[in-house]
Amino acid sequence: MTGSTPQPLSTNHPRPLDVHRLEVIHVDGDAYTVDVRGHRLHVDQPAEAGGTDTAPTPTELFAASLATCVAFYAGRYLHRHGLPRAGLRVRTEFTMATDRPARVASLRLVVVPPPALSEQQRAALLAVASHCTVHNTLHQPPETDIELEP
């Protein structure tokens, strides 16, 4: 209903003070858009999975979320210590579980630091990057509720 007051996603649990919202809207077939703070992302499925391959899959965005979080933390470490970020990369690969339920079975991230970091700086960079928000969330999963709107 347009113009109605948004209802809480969950009535079973009090809302934390810092609630972040996004909305996913069906576009066509297996394609969806995600609206986040005025930004629009697209997701789809590969053609062999019934989609039209117009965008990454939700699972690819999941892996990308972790990779970009690791890169962000690594970049912030470099910036705080007056080190260059040029050349910083995070290569990521994931595999899917072969049993049910459908899920990502493994993720491997390789942080490629800028050249000329000392071994101590490289170790510190990895330690900081390993504690990004998304990685921490995977280690301490949030309570997740999926509900139907009344």
Results as ranks from 00 to 15, higher is better:
residue 80 R to E: 13
residue 122 R to D: 13
residue 106 S to R: 09
residue 123 A to P: 13
residue 105 A to T: 06
residue 124 A to Q: 09
residue 100 R to N: 12
residue 65 S to D: 04
residue 117 L to Q: 04
residue 70 V to T: 15
residue 115 P to W: 06
residue 42 H to I: 10
residue 115 P to N: 12
residue 109 L to N: 12
residue 45 Q to T: 08
residue 57 T to V: 04
residue 127 A to E: 07
residue 49 A to V: 07
residue 77 Y to E: 11
residue 71 A to Q: 12
residue 68 T to I: 13
residue 113 P to S: 06
residue 86 A to W: 00
residue 104 V to W: 01
residue 79 H to M: 08
residue 92 T to Q: 05
residue 59 T to P: 01
residue 82 G to N: 14
residue 83 L to F: 11
residue 93 E to S: 13
residue 77 Y to L: 05
residue 124 A to S: 08
residue 122 R to L: 12
residue 116 A to L: 09
residue 114 P to G: 04
residue 40 R to M: 09
residue 49 A to Q: 06
residue 78 L to E: 06
residue 81 H to A: 06
residue 94 F to V: 03
residue 64 A to V: 03
residue 51 G to Y: 11
residue 90 V to F: 10
residue 100 R to G: 09
residue 70 V to C: 07
residue 106 S to W: 11
residue 70 V to N: 01
residue 44 D to W: 03
residue 75 G to H: 05
residue 106 S to E: 14
residue 48 E to G: 01
residue 123 A to C: 09
residue 42 H to F: 14
residue 40 R to K: 13
residue 56 P to M: 05
residue 111 V to I: 15
residue 88 L to A: 03
residue 72 F to I: 12
residue 83 L to W: 14
residue 113 P to I: 02
residue 51 G to V: 04
residue 93 E to I: 10
residue 99 D to F: 15
residue 88 L to W: 03
residue 65 S to H: 04
residue 89 R to S: 15
residue 85 R to W: 02
residue 50 G to L: 04
residue 93 E to D: 12
residue 92 T to I: 13
residue 125 L to V: 01
residue 104 V to S: 03
residue 124 A to H: 14
residue 68 T to Q: 15
residue 66 L to Y: 00
residue 48 E to Q: 12
residue 62 F to R: 02
residue 65 S to A: 15
residue 71 A to C: 13
residue 119 E to Y: 02
residue 60 E to T: 00
residue 70 V to Q: 03
residue 46 P to N: 08
residue 81 H to C: 10
residue 62 F to I: 02
residue 76 R to A: 06
residue 102 A to N: 12
residue 102 A to C: 03
residue 53 D to F: 10
residue 84 P to E: 08
residue 99 D to H: 15
residue 47 A to W: 01
residue 47 A to F: 08
residue 50 G to A: 07
residue 71 A to M: 11
residue 104 V to T: 10
residue 58 P to D: 15
residue 51 G to H: 05
residue 48 E to M: 10
residue 123 A to D: 15
residue 99 D to C: 15
residue 60 E to R: 00
residue 66 L to M: 13
residue 86 A to L: 09
residue 65 S to L: 02
residue 115 P to Y: 05
residue 99 D to T: 15
residue 102 A to W: 07
residue 72 F to C: 08
residue 107 L to W: 01
residue 120 Q to M: 07
residue 128 V to S: 07
residue 119 E to R: 10
residue 90 V to P: 01
residue 47 A to R: 14
residue 69 C to Q: 04
residue 121 Q to H: 12
residue 107 L to V: 14
residue 45 Q to P: 00
residue 75 G to D: 03
residue 53 D to W: 07
residue 120 Q to C: 07
residue 50 G to E: 04
residue 55 A to Q: 01
residue 94 F to L: 13
residue 111 V to E: 00
